[in-house]
Amino acid sequence: MSAAVLPVIEAQGLHVHAGENTLLRDVSLSIAPGERVAIVGHNGAGKSTLLRTISAFSRVHGGRVNVLGTDVTLLGEPRNSQKTRDLRQLRSRVAQVLQGLHLVGRLSALDNVLIGGAARTPSWLTWFRRWPAREREQARAALMRVGMAWAAQRRTDSLSGGERQKVAIARALHQNAPVLLADEPTASLDAEAADEVIALLRELVAERKATLICVVHDLDLVPRLAERVIVLRRGHLVADVKVDANTATELRGILK
């Protein structure tokens, strides 16, 4: 990593709280383009909050976060159209694969993938699911890429957990963003489906030279997904280390 490369994400003294609860305290980190970072920690340690902050879904109460050169802190409460536009622009460049049920159940897999291209095609025609032919082609290709082309016209609520997660990855693929956030992408999947999802995520990130930031629950998955791991405990960043063969064991020690 040369010093000339600007970090994709840079946080300094980040504070986030919800009511009485402090979710993140004084978190500082810097992530370079193309890095694969895992975030681990107990429930309520602030892992998901950190992701939500990066995608500008969480209000920031102190410190700064810069994502792809945009100061997210300033977008916290979009009140004018310029800010709204900046916010959408930023979000379109940060794709997300979340845990479980976050596809629109009553829409087909293809329609769900097409949503990934929403920011590129803001026309009102898309409200009625009329997308440009190029977008359709690209979305089909994305479905094909994750091996779900057969399900293009299937409603996503008729698909299994693993199949849905693959459709979600196809959406991220279609969104074509330089940053990919994943929040326990393998939660509630069986081993085989989890393996597939992990393999796809890794391929996607490698192909697009994207940055991956992934919340991981199962510590054994850390070495397979990431080259760097960040440990959160009660909102504090307690460790930020490179991943090697012993990492899973070490993490167990840190997290007890």
Binding site: R88, S92, R93, Q96, A118, P122
Partner: peptide
């Protein structure tokens, strides 16, 4: 699902 749509920059 709604937040996920919003997250694409829609």
């Amino acid at each position: 699902p709604v937040d996920a749509v919003r997250a694409t920059g829609a």
